[in-house]
Design a protein around this nucleic acid. Structure first.
Lengths: 347, 347
DNA sequence: TTGAAAGCGCTAACAA
DNA sequence: TTGTTAGCGCTTTCAA
């Protein structure tokens, strides 16, 4: 702290009142209890002395830190900054401050991070980690207001705000089907993440609802939502020898991985193979070709998660609810009509 | 807070010692003052009761919040997440928690954000805002440990960690010169930001040191580091009618803006015009063409800023110092040999 | 090596 | 409407 710390007591002395009165003047909820004239005198003293309330002392007394913990796998993943901003903007508007922590999808770090947040007495937590095992769920929820984002609660015991992954995948597949594609491959995300599992299931459902078949050779299960896994996926798909004219991916980075394998193999996207991503990450429109993908309202997800959490803090007895936000397919250059004749797709 | 809050006093009771002893046991610095056996008993009680120290109470007492404020213009700008992670990783390792706030380059928000941080008794601030006017400088520094990142301190009164913008721009221009370009245009960033001004000055210096001239018609001053300004810049450059074979930009987004104008005008990059960006933003290698640009060690900038701040907090009397981190040109597909013959570059 | 006591700055129940 | 009082949970001087 700096030397120039003015306390409530000093303000009280200056205004010739009791510290309690100053406190009452400064607090919205109790301001009405104090005489207008007195309040004026207090406020004058406050500005003369440049008084700023000590939030820490207040928190100690009130047991509310006005702080919310936000847990993300990695802020560096372009998905999360918009979400976080959505939360922060909403929370800041209500006087809350946001504590952001990265877990790198590591359970140990996740535990450590949550511990830190508890120690800091956060009033609530928004968790953007997508792991399906109910690790957070067990720890939190019961004694800390918690909202999940981008991940449903398996047991439905926690409130969640998620994008409609099933519908998004459905739109992606229908988009390809409308282009006449009948052999559509899929590069799935990790099935340990709810996003990975949901999207894969929706893929299967939609393919079948189109009267098409899911050839096991047409599905690759990535171990992470990364470009490298996209590369592995497309390589495996091509190596299988089973022809396809389009591939849907569980994530834009994977789609990017497909791009490079296709290019290396002398295959043109979308002329030879259409590619559809997922997420509409920033600059997806700048890629070569511009990526057709499913847009997720990241910022709004964040906002809704924040609102939901705020409500939960106000009314702890609220029933958990899952909020599903709509997504939209963004058609760009990476998808087009199915080739007339199926050629072999070997690299 | 939840019902299950165990206090120091309860631990003391359980261990049959005085609260002071528990405190001493739990604090690194004073642990040696307590008998090994006693300490063991205390630690046992701690884990039996699941005690967690109340950080807020500690802060109130010690006047240290173990919290650092980080001020960025906009977390959504891909520059900042890696910086923030660099800081956070370093700070977390020392037990500090990071409070991130966005200003949107708005002075009012900046003031509000800093006020919030003061109220929260942050132990220090890292400011990543690049505005040149010494707004923060006036407010901070004197009474709060402050480190600037990505921006030098005009008066050199604050410590700063910056990338070597002059050298980066130099490298970019020399790269183009080595390709035989003699008419090199420049799309500059806002001159109100130190990054914008430094890079522009380095551009002029380097061009001249190459024995070339800076034609005023070859320079466009963007009002923001955005794609839209890149578009405006390239349009202006082409409209001027003064031929050029390459353009350096103060920022990757601006380079992206150039791409679209060139494409619209039927000009090929790099065959007709080479383009060089700045920052090496994520996925710059995925653009069409892959962008030649100057790589900045964002993560390391963050780490260094954090280390510098930590040192400053430990030793407040340290002289302010500016740390310059090296940058490197990354040659990719958007730059190539100058066309043999200068053609008119009208759109 | 440990206990006692005071107090960080604030809020809130109670009294006046 | 205001003052009084107590105390949030912790650290830290001082004394033993």
């Amino acid at each position: 702290m700096n030397a120039r710390t003015v306390t409530l007591r000093e303000v009280a002395d200056r205004a010739g009142v009791h510290p309690g009165t100053v406190s009452r003047t400064l607090n919205e909820a109790t301001r009405h209890l104090v005489n207008a004239e007195t309040a004026e005198r207090v406020l004058a003293a406050v500005s003369e002395l440049g008084y700023r309330p000590n939030v820490i002392a207040r928190s100690l007394r009130t047991n509310r830190s006005l702080t919310i913990g936000v847990v993300v796998p990695d802020l560096t993943n372009p998905l999360f900054p918009p979400m976080v901003r959505g939360m922060d903007d909403r929370l800041a508007a209500s006087g809350y401050t946001t504590l952001i922590a990265n877990t790198d999808n590591d359970l140990q770090r996740e535990a450590a991070v949550l511990e830190t947040m508890r120690l800091r007495q956060v009033d609530g937590v928004i968790a953007a980690t997508a792991r399906r095992e109910a690790f957070l769920v067990d720890q939190l929820g019961a004694d800390l207001a918690t909202v999940l984002i981008n991940r449903r609660s398996e047991a439905e015991r926690l409130s969640a705000v998620v994008a409609d992954d099933r519908d998004g995948t459905r739109q992606a597949v229908l988009h390809l089907a409308a282009f006449g594609h009948e052999r559509i491959a899929y590069i799935a995300g990790p099935q340990t993440l709810s996003t990975g599992a949901d999207r894969y299931e929706a893929f299967v459902d939609t393919i079948e609802s189109c009267g098409l078949d899911v050839d096991p050779a047409h599905v690759f299960f990535g171990e992470a939502f990364t470009e490298a896994e996209g590369v592995r996926g497309m390589q495996a798909l091509l190596a299988s020898g089973v022809p396809f004219t389009a591939v849907a991916t569980a994530n834009d980075l994977m789609a990017l991985g497909c791009y490079s394998v296709l290019a290396e193999g002398g295959l043109h996207c979308p002329r030879d193979v259409s590619v559809v991503g997922y997420n509409d990450m920033p600059f997806a429109d700048k890629f070569n070709p511009p990526l057709t993908t499913v847009h997720i309202p990241h910022y709004e997800l964040g906002e809704h998660a924040a609102s939901t959490l705020l409500r939960l803090i106000e009314h702890p007895e609220t029933e958990p609810q899952t909020r599903l936000l709509p997504v939209t397919l963004v058609a760009r250059g990476s998808s087009g009509p199915a080739p007339q004749r199926l050629k072999r797709r070997h690299a």
